[in-house]
Design a protein around this nucleic acid. Structure first.
Lengths: 103, 103
DNA sequence: ACAAACCGTAAGTCATAACTTACGGTAAGA
DNA sequence: TCTTACCGTAAGTTATGACTTACGGTTTGT
């Protein structure tokens, strides 16, 4: 899964709120939407984005759709971030200590 | 630093491209913008967002402004992600194995 | 002091994405 | 079978944000 779409998906506060509500375990769309400030169709649209980003998966249970967190998307961001982390620390230390001019 | 602003900042491809260009070390605004498809003012605006998100810092060198990666923003995302990771794996495993219905 | 280099910001345009309501389709229950 | 519950999608509106050009401020060098 591409880290780009996962980052784009996590940029939206409402989408993060949906993810937070799935933290405790799988939930149906109606249960996710219940108590939120946006409408149920809005939640459906957000779930679609989260799914395409590999952050959630779903399965059918009767007439309901149960969504749950998929580690795939999170893993994609994690590896990208870790890869970045090394160079970041090195670049930062070199900056703070040396104070050399790189035009 | 808040992880929210960092995530929002990393959602934009151009902004990620700016960060990538700082991976090798500090650079002035002109040098960052050179070779990119967008204008220099656009790069300045992106740097402002990245700075507010704690992803970059800068210092003055003569008439130039040298920017460099700040680990602060990355660390914010990292800790939030790690915090999420635990529950995500647990929730995912419970889903795949048990297949129980949580309305 | 004047000119040139470098950069940030203001103002305005345009695309995108986040929301709403309305609708249709499928599964369960009477 | 008919109704009800649950959900996804289409269509339309509106806010937001990414970009451009224009401008002004500051520092260096002559």
């Amino acid at each position: 899964m591409a880290y780009q779409s996962a980052l784009a998906a996590l940029a939206d506060p409402t989408r993060r709120h949906v993810l937070e509500r799935l933290r405790g375990g799988p939930k149906s769309v109606g249960r996710i939407a219940h108590g939120m400030t946006v409408s149920r169709p809005a939640v459906s649209q957000h779930l679609k984005v989260l799914k395409q980003a590999g952050l959630v998966s779903d399965r059918a249970v009767g007439t309901r759709r149960v969504y749950y967190i998929d580690p795939k998307g999170l893993a994609a961001i994690r590896s990208w971030l870790d890869q970045f982390w090394e160079d970041a620390l090195q670049s930062f230390k070199a900056e703070v200590e040396k104070k050399d001019v790189s035009t």
